[in-house]
């Protein structure tokens, strides 16, 4: 890997005081950004500069900073999580950018993900979808059976595991031109539908989760495939197809 160097960039960042106010794009110059820093570290550097200038720092979501929690929801230069695939924003590095670049940073845009402040959006719509059916009811009164006591075909287990890799980041919604959440819901439906433990409540689950998804105001998938490409966890469109099958089965 080439040695790190410092670059000067221009940032165009969405600033919005709160959910009620109208926001707008603000322009900031930031010098001496190390290409070895992550995108979030670059934003930390900007915020330090803003604080020193006695200005309000930019609010953005982050937690694990290692691609696990899914909170770092930034739309960078027209793409969810920026110009690289298979990563979250915290895994994006400044070496993807050049000296003199102008970088747009915006929040996820979705009716179901209203902006709370600056780049932070409210993603509890995903939680409500999950609560509508993304679980397996078990009796926990002391006689819970060990999950591994049920044999699961290897192929199904692998597919369920791949679906369960979804971190609920919302990049699929953000990059979909229809603001559709079907990749997320497809993954959540699939991870249970593929396993014997999930089959018991399969009918109710898919109907309830899809109803909640529609109520939240997410759009309808037109199979553009943008979600699959931007998803940091490589969740496949096969999961949407499986959800559609499950939905039809549950409806008939």
């Amino acid at each position: 890997m080439s040695a790190a160097k410092n670059i000067n960039i221009t940032l165009k960042i969405w600033r919005q005081k709160n959910a009620k106010t109208k926001g707008g794009i603000e322009t900031y110059k930031l010098d001496n950004v190390s290409t070895a820093s992550s995108f979030l570290e670059m934003l930390d550097q900007l915020n330090e500069q803003l604080v020193n200038d006695r200005k309000e720092p930019v609010a953005f979501d982050h937690d694990c900073r290692e691609g696990i929690c899914g909170s770092c929801s930034l739309y960078i230069n027209g793409r969810a999580h920026g110009p690289d695939i298979g990563i979250t924003t915290c895994q994006l590095h400044m070496r993807m950018f050049n000296d003199g670049d102008t970088i747009f940073v915006e929040p996820w845009r979705s009716k179901a993900f209203p902006v709370i402040k600056d780049l932070v959006v409210d993603r509890t719509a995903f939680d409500r979808i999950q609560q509508a059916g993304g679980f397996v009811s078990v009796n926990t009164s002391g006689n819970t059976i060990d999950a591994n006591s049920l044999p699961v075909p290897k192929d199904d287990a692998d597919k369920a595991f791949m679906a369960a890799a979804c971190i609920g980041c919302g990049a699929c919604v953000a990059s979909c031109k229809n603001g559709s959440a079907m990749l997320f819901v497809g993954a959540k439906v699939s991870q249970y539908a593929l396993l014997p433990q999930g089959k018991v409540e399969a009918t109710e689950r898919v109907l309830n989760m899809v109803r909640q998804m529609d109520e939240e105001g997410f759009g309808n998938c037109t199979n553009t495939g943008a979600c699959e490409i931007e998803c940091p966890k490589g969740i496949s469109l096969e999961n949407i197809a499986r959800m559609n099958r499950e939905y039809l089965k549950a409806s008939l």
Binding site: K12, W14, I25, Y75, N77, G78, R79, P83, F104, E106, R109, S110, K111, A112, S175, K177, N178, G179, S180, G217, F218, G219, N220, T222, T224, G225, A226, I229, E230
Partner: peptide
């Protein structure tokens, strides 16, 4: 419905990076 699902458009978008 799909238009309503995104009331505020992105200032910059790069759709050809991920869809036809």
């Amino acid at each position: 419905q799909n238009k309503k699902a995104r009331p505020v458009a992105y200032a910059k978008s790069n759709p050809s990076a991920n869809s036809s």
